[in-house]
Design a protein around this nucleic acid. Sequence first.
DNA 1: CGTGAAATTGACTTCTCTCAACTAGCGTGG
DNA 2: CCACGCTAGTTGAGAGAAGTCAATTTCACG
Lengths: 242, 242
Amino acid sequence: MHKRISLSPESTRCSTCMLNSLCLPLGINSNDISKFDEVVSERIRIPKGETLFHQGDRSVAIYGIRSGSIKTQLEDATGQVQVTGFLLPGEVVGIDGFLNTTQLSNAIALEDTEVCVARIDDMDRVAAHVPAVQHQLRRLSSEEIKRSQQLVVALGVLRSEQRLAAFLLNLSQRLAALGYSPSEFVLRMSREEIGNYLGLTLETVSRLFSRFARENLIRIHQREVQLLDLPMLRQLSGVDCG
Amino acid sequence: MHKRISLSPESTRCSTCMLNSLCLPLGINSNDISKFDEVVSERIRIPKGETLFHQGDRSVAIYGIRSGSIKTQLEDATGQVQVTGFLLPGEVVGIDGFLNTTQLSNAIALEDTEVCVARIDDMDRVAAHVPAVQHQLRRLSSEEIKRSQQLVVALGVLRSEQRLAAFLLNLSQRLAALGYSPSEFVLRMSREEIGNYLGLTLETVSRLFSRFARENLIRIHQREVQLLDLPMLRQLSGVDCG
DNA sequence: CGTGAAATTGACTTCTCTCAACTAGCGTGG
DNA sequence: CCACGCTAGTTGAGAGAAGTCAATTTCACG
């Protein structure tokens, strides 16, 4: 199993975490936030490429990402992979499993990653008498469904270039929310992983990056991206145009 | 608004409904099932083509389908449509909205349909002191995520023929659970709606039906389908092959 | 500095869409 | 009851998008 870090009183807890306004305790006031300190008992370190949980595992917890990043993916019997999400710090992994008794997806670290563990039975116990926590679980479930539905729309109605543009914009926006540059970042995933997320081959992803660069929409060198023309990318993605 | 039918004591209630083992009260024992009679206060009739709720509406209830069928779809600003599901009797519509404060999708009747209304505040009130009901809501949320993820996989990794085969098999299985023939049924949706669900054009759907018929996998005449070769369809869908 | 994985690029194939013509079936009203 | 018109569905031809296979290139890492 992964390296577990028990949280001593002097460790960073939810109440003192920089990410608490984005992560598990989102929208919970400072009185109730301490309830999360009660629930989040430990952290786990997951080295790059290692699995946090497997599809089919009994669900024991949900995980707030403290640093690093995680991909979730579904695998069928034939070994075909559909990546269902790339999660960043402050985001929560394992909600789909929380609602079920077993995990629906695999969660794999894209880089060395640290996650805060909120055990399901602790969550349930606390939620029973803290409506804010209950509400939070519902919000997280709703987010999960929205994310999934967004992906359905991308795969169902967008063309490849629109999917990739929307993907870059989505990342940009989420990184901005974390205080990073919205226009310059490093992709933590390979072309193949992007392809498995967007329902495209790695070659198509690579060609599109090259084309976007040729059209001066982005600059890209390996995994370093710079978004040069956000308005044009937005228009291309077809998400907002009327 | 739609025709509302208040439920008098002698009306069919959850406790006496044929569908109760599939619908809202699934897996709830006969003691607790009467709690649903408390929650399900009325039924609504939705004529074919009419909308049960719109994307953006404040969520007030979840709906168990008593008869008929419903499609749910997302629409973006450009009017592009992604159908996210076709729901049959005994299935529950509006869970995504239940978790949110507003509806995420539109729900439209494919034929004259009757739904049982479980108001969210009633549900929450009852759930607070009936764990079985709470558990049930979680189960329904989980089902919703699974459904959505299944669609993601279909759109992301399956080819058109596999999508359509999987679609037919899925319908077949759900109809069988209702006691209908798994091999002979009537499609309640148009080719275009199937296309909008599977991320294909109506022409592609039509061509695939013709091809399946030519290959003696199915027989199809307008909306009447007969599945002639279930094993072959299963193999084609790629869902189970090793 | 060499090796291997990841990424790029090209040539070609295949799948799906688009546009268009045509057909079948259904409902309405004369 | 039939005729008309409308909608849904089918089919074909051609275009365009994305996939496949293969050859390089780049870069990270030992």
